[in-house]
């Protein structure tokens, strides 16, 4: 009876269940520290599906526990999964930012780094009828009167906000003097940019690309190190602003797992990232693959923690 229902569910497609051979891990369990539907959720569910398809896991389960930038999910994950070699949590720059900002009792240091997966890059845009033609124009305006440049983007402390602060710092303007207008969610921000309520806006490339292609917005710069593949929008660096910043995501394993468990989990994740469905997800969301594993990933996260903390101190978010 239960099997029948499961099959019916499968037809409806609500469960991912596929048999595979030579399983690296059994039932992989993902903790997603955000509500369903967002980028964290898509990352976890996309990776879980790819791992099952690769035959690296028998099935994938997902638990959403949103709130406080993912730190509530993190606390629950760290306490409930000690030593469980099948458990993973989705992390990223946003969670590191929330840890720096909220100083929760449980941090990433208590759990086991597995892999960084990809980067997302931001783009700076102005409405199509704006007189600003390049980042140089923006920086000049900023130097003349910092308050006159109204930057629209995501919440304070986000990658959007930090990138603006870094641009100001690079231009020799006090980062606490920027006029940053935070909006909730990309939708509100894009509406404010389209409606001309802010001078310039920044958000993920994927959210803005449609407005750029349709000519409703003009892209001034991307925040990546080099031009995005197939695109002509210049980077900040190419315009003389020494800022490169991205929003990365990755996965961590449970606290106290053995070196063997860590290795087989890492292998299973890597196998997942080689699947077509994962590469399709990367392409659809404009996620740029940047896989990094083992100690290099740990070192990377430590460096990120420091970098984000410094940026937040510069804008006065952290004392």
């Amino acid at each position: 009876m239960k099997l029948m229902l499961r099959q019916a569910m499968l037809a409806l497609g609500t469960t991912v269940l596929l048999a595979g051979s030579a399983l690296a891990v059994d039932n992989v369990k993902f903790m997603i520290g955000a509500n369903p539907g967002g980028g964290y959720d898509q990352t976890g569910r996309g990776l879980g599906k790819a791992m099952v398809e690769a035959g690296a896991a028998k099935s994938a389960q997902f638990e959403n526990k949103g709130g406080a930038g993912g730190t509530i999910g993190l606390a629950q994950f760290a306490n409930a999964t000690k030593g469980d070699g099948n458990a993973m949590i989705v992390t990223g720059a946003v969670m590191v930012g929330a840890i720096v900002q909220n100083k929760p009792p449980v941090t990433l240091a208590q759990i086991t780094p597995i892999a960084r997966l990809f980067y997302e890059y931001n783009v700076f845009v102005v409405p199509a009828n704006s007189p600003l033609k390049s980042m140089k124009d923006v920086v000049e305006m900023l130097k003349k009167d910092p308050g006159s440049v109204k930057w629209g983007g995501g919440s304070r402390g986000s990658v959007d906000h930090i990138s603006v602060a870094q641009i100001a710092k690079d231009a020799g303007v006090d980062p606490t003097k920027i006029n940053y207008v935070p909006f909730q969610g990309g939708g509100e921000a894009s509406a404010a940019i389209l409606g001309g309520h802010v001078t310039i806006g920044t958000s993920g490339w994927n959210e803005m690309v449609q407005f750029i292609k349709s000519g409703k917005m003009r892209a001034l710069a991307v925040t990546s190190g080099a031009k995005l593949p197939g695109e002509t929008v210049p980077t900040l660096k190419e315009q003389g602003i020494n800022v490169e910043i991205g929003n990365w995501r990755g996965v961590y394993g449970a606290a106290g797992i053995s070196a063997d468990q860590r290795k087989s989990l890492t292998d299973a994740v890597i196998a997942g990232t080689k699947q077509k469905s994962w590469n399709d997800a990367l392409a659809a969301n404009d996620w740029f693959p940047a896989v990094l594993t083992g100690d290099e990933f740990s070192k990377f996260v430590d460096a990120e923690h420091k970098r984000i903390e410094e940026s937040m101190r510069a804008v006065g978010l952290v004392k």
């Binding site: 409806l12 497609g13 609500t14 509500n35 539907g37 569910r45 599906k49």
Partner: peptide
């Protein structure tokens, strides 16, 4: 959100 996987 929960029904999203259906879209696959």
């Amino acid at each position: 959100a929960m029904l999203l996987p259906v879209t696959a």
